Lab assay of single mutants.
Amino acid sequence: VTLFVALYDYEARTEDDLSAHKGEKFQILNSSEGDWWEARSLTTGETGYIPSNYVAPV
């Protein structure tokens, strides 16, 4: 399991995006899409895309 933590708040801009709150942890499901990674929030269980530069490894 690849875990990352949000460094900043991010507000989803499309229905495919996933909002993130600073300190929230995510499981990365797919990081092969360049700057946008598919992730699952460990807080809400929701999945979507987050900007890779907004997260760091735990």
Results as ranks from 00 to 15, higher is better:
Gly23Ile: 01
Ser52Asp: 01
Pro51Gly: 04
Lys25Phe: 15
Ala39Cys: 08
Thr43Ile: 10
Asp35Pro: 09
Glu46Asn: 12
Ser32His: 11
Glu24Thr: 03
Lys22Gln: 08
Leu3His: 08
Asp35Phe: 13
Val58Glu: 08
Ile28His: 00
Asn30Met: 07
Arg13Trp: 07
Tyr49Asn: 07
Leu3Phe: 12
Tyr49His: 07
Thr47Asp: 03
Gly23Asp: 05
Gly48Arg: 02
Lys25Asp: 00
Glu24Ile: 03
Ser19Phe: 05
Ser41Phe: 03
Leu18Ile: 12
Gly48Leu: 05
Glu46Arg: 15
Asp16Gly: 15
Ser31Val: 11
Glu46Met: 14
Glu38Trp: 15
Gln27Trp: 15
Val5Leu: 05
Gly48Phe: 05
Leu42Val: 09
Phe26Lys: 01
Leu42Arg: 01
Leu29His: 04
Tyr10Lys: 00
Gly48Asn: 01
Gln27Ala: 10
Arg13Lys: 12
Thr44Asp: 02
Thr47Glu: 08
Gln27Arg: 09
Leu3Val: 14
Tyr49Glu: 00
Thr44Pro: 00
Tyr49Lys: 13
Gly23His: 03
Gly45Phe: 07
Ala6Trp: 04
Ser31His: 10
Trp37Asp: 01
Leu18Ser: 01
Asp16Phe: 15
Ala12Glu: 02
Gly48Val: 04
Gln27Cys: 14
Gly45Pro: 00
Asn30Lys: 09
Arg13Glu: 10
Asp35Val: 09
Lys25Arg: 12
Asp16Ile: 13
Thr43Glu: 14
Thr47Ser: 09
Val55Leu: 15
Ile50Glu: 01
Asp17Cys: 15
Tyr54Arg: 07
Gly45Gln: 05
Glu33Lys: 14
Asp16Tyr: 15
Trp37Met: 06
Val5His: 04
Ser41Glu: 02
Ser32Glu: 10
Tyr49Ser: 05
Phe4Glu: 00
Phe4Val: 13
Ala20Ile: 15
Val55Ala: 03
Leu29Gly: 02
Glu11Ser: 10
Tyr8Leu: 08
Ser31Tyr: 12
Asp9Gln: 06
Glu46Leu: 14
Glu33Pro: 10
Thr43Pro: 01
Leu18Met: 10
Glu38Ala: 07
Gly34Arg: 12
Trp36Gly: 02
Glu33Tyr: 11
His21Lys: 15
Glu46Lys: 15
Lys25His: 13
Tyr49Ala: 04
Glu33Trp: 11
Lys22Gly: 03
Gly48Thr: 05
Ile50Ser: 02
Trp36Leu: 11
Thr44Ile: 02
Leu42Gln: 06
Tyr49Thr: 06
Asn53Met: 12
Ala56Asp: 03
Gly45Tyr: 06
Glu46Ser: 10
Trp36Met: 15
Asp16Arg: 15
Val58Met: 11
Asn53His: 13
Asp9Ser: 07
Pro51Arg: 08
Trp37Thr: 02
Glu24Cys: 06
Arg13Leu: 10
Asn30Trp: 08
Asn53Tyr: 12
Gly48Ser: 01
Ser52Asn: 05
Asp17Val: 12
Asp35Lys: 08
Thr14Glu: 08
Asn30Glu: 06
Glu46Pro: 01
Asp9Lys: 05
Thr14Asn: 14
Ser19Cys: 07
Arg40Thr: 10
Arg40Tyr: 09
Gly34Tyr: 09
Thr14Cys: 15
Ser31Gln: 13
Tyr10Met: 04
Phe26Leu: 08
Tyr8Arg: 09
Ala39Asp: 01
Arg40Cys: 08
Glu33Leu: 14
Gln27Ser: 07
Asp17Gln: 15
Thr44Trp: 03
Gly45Ala: 04
Phe4Asp: 00
Leu42Asn: 04
Thr43Tyr: 09
Thr14Leu: 09
Ala12Asn: 04
Asp16Pro: 03
